[in-house]
Design a protein around this nucleic acid. Structure first.
Lengths: 133, 133
DNA sequence: GATAGGAGCTGTAGTCGCTACAGGTTCAAG
DNA sequence: CTTGAACCTGTAGCGACTACAGCTCCTATC
């Protein structure tokens, strides 16, 4: 394999993205079909590495593959405006805040329930009662 | 339909659980197979209503169906101890806290990224740069 | 040049918790 | 008795992977 070109396993190690997942990304069209060796194995280059790292980082930040697709379209198009990207990011932040609020509500309720419980061996449980209510 | 017995649609309305979901719960064994009319339609009673409400409430609090299965086993067994239920609840709370921490980290990073962006029309975007880094 | 074995290939099926049909049957009101 | 709303079963789809099985290829060593 030439310098600056990688097999799928190397790409996987460099980006921390599973091999199966890389092939999955290709199948759903979020990663391009790379050239192949005569024997049919994928050959990646630095551009692929960067793109995959972008995807990985975006996934880590909770963007859905659809959102990432949109981000990549903007970037690929070359004519993206910072405003569009910012808009998506802000929408995503709002989404995360909603999720946090939901989880905090759950946490509070569960904590209250658990606090009523002395953890004894009795077959009467305030948590079960609360869940049944 | 007799008093204190309900068709699936009524159960659905009472609990806010989708009809399809109720049948799904039955298929995966989390709701019992109810008796049927001569024509094959499901007949539910107050016990079913309570059980489904329990499931719904637990789902709202983020318990997985597997966790709910475990909770129900404890309750059904009759010999459950409050301690076991409390243990599951505390584990679940820990899980929720982890999720909240993750989301907060995401939020912070995204917020920082978005703050660097003036939302202009320029094709150079600090968010994209940050995602690529 | 032969051989071993690690790495890669395709295609399919499973995960979780539903949801959405299609195409049929039953029930209850008028 | 007729209408039509509600119910039935079975299957397939979602999102984002993951895990095989059963191959083929590539490369390092002898």
């Amino acid at each position: 394999m030439m310098a600056n070109s990688y097999a799928i396993g190397t790409l996987s190690k460099h980006t921390g993205v599973n091999i199966e997942t890389i092939r999955y990304y290709e199948r759903i069209g979020i990663m391009p079909k790379p050239p192949r060796t005569a024997g049919g194995q994928r050959i990646y280059e630095t551009a692929h590495l960067k793109r995959l790292a972008f995807i990985r980082r975006s996934r880590e930040l909770g963007f859905s593959l659809d959102e990432i697709r949109a981000l990549l379209r903007l970037v690929d198009g070359g004519d993206y405006s910072c405003g569009e990207v910012q808009e998506m990011t802000l929408a995503h932040i709002a989404d995360i805040r909603r999720k946090i609020a939901d989880l905090r509500r759950m946490e509070r309720v569960l904590k209250d329930m658990a606090a009523k419980c002395d953890g004894g061996d009795v077959p009467e449980c305030p948590i079960v009662d609360a869940l049944s209510a």
